[in-house]
Measured scan of single mutants.
Amino acid sequence: HRQALGERLYPRVQAMQPAFASKITGMLLELSPAQLLLLLASEDSLRARVDEAMELII
């Protein structure tokens, strides 16, 4: 289940942060499945989480 969510998330994360897409997707997969579904449904929520992840990385 998580694998399938990751496969759906990755291209969207890659479009926002290509250099760190794998790392960010891995970080996002730590969230609950319900939270992941919310990110897939909301571009704004996904962008906010990706921005948060980038702050942790750099």
Rank of each mutant, 00 (worst) to 15 (best):
A4R: 09
I57V: 05
L36D: 00
S42A: 07
L46N: 00
A21V: 04
A48W: 08
V50A: 02
Q3R: 09
F20A: 05
K23C: 06
E52V: 07
A41T: 09
R49W: 13
M16P: 01
I58D: 07
L37W: 12
D51P: 01
S42L: 05
R12I: 12
P18M: 05
Q3W: 05
L37A: 08
I58M: 12
L31K: 03
G6E: 15
M16A: 03
A53S: 06
K23N: 05
D44Y: 06
L40E: 04
E7V: 12
L28M: 04
E30H: 10
M16H: 06
P11G: 14
A21E: 01
L29K: 03
V13G: 03
I24W: 02
F20P: 02
R47Q: 08
V13Y: 01
T25R: 06
R2W: 07
M27K: 04
T25H: 05
E52C: 07
R2A: 12
R47W: 05
H1P: 08
Q14L: 15
A34H: 09
P18F: 05
S22Y: 15
I24M: 01
E52A: 10
L5T: 05
S42M: 05
A21N: 00
I24Q: 00
E43R: 07
I24G: 00
I58F: 11
M54S: 03
M54H: 06
R2V: 14
R8H: 07
D51W: 13
Q17S: 09
E52M: 11
A41W: 07
A4F: 10
A4Q: 13
L9D: 00
A4T: 14
R47M: 06
Q3H: 10
E30M: 11
G26T: 15
V50P: 00
M54F: 10
R47C: 03
L38V: 10
I57E: 02
A19T: 11
L39I: 11
V50S: 01
M54G: 01
P18A: 06
L40S: 02
D44H: 09
L39Y: 03
E43W: 11
G26Y: 15
A41K: 11
L5I: 12
E30F: 09
L40M: 08
I58N: 12
T25V: 15
L28K: 02
L38R: 11
P18N: 05
E55F: 12
P18V: 04
A53N: 03
L56S: 11
A19R: 11
A48G: 05
E55R: 14
S32E: 12
M16W: 07
H1E: 15
Q3A: 08
M27E: 02
R49E: 05
A4G: 10
A19V: 13
E7T: 09
L5N: 03
L31G: 04
P11T: 15
I57A: 02
L31N: 04
V50W: 01
E30K: 14
V50N: 00
L28Q: 00
E43F: 07
M16Y: 14
L56C: 06
L40D: 03
S32K: 08
D51V: 11
E55H: 13
P33F: 12
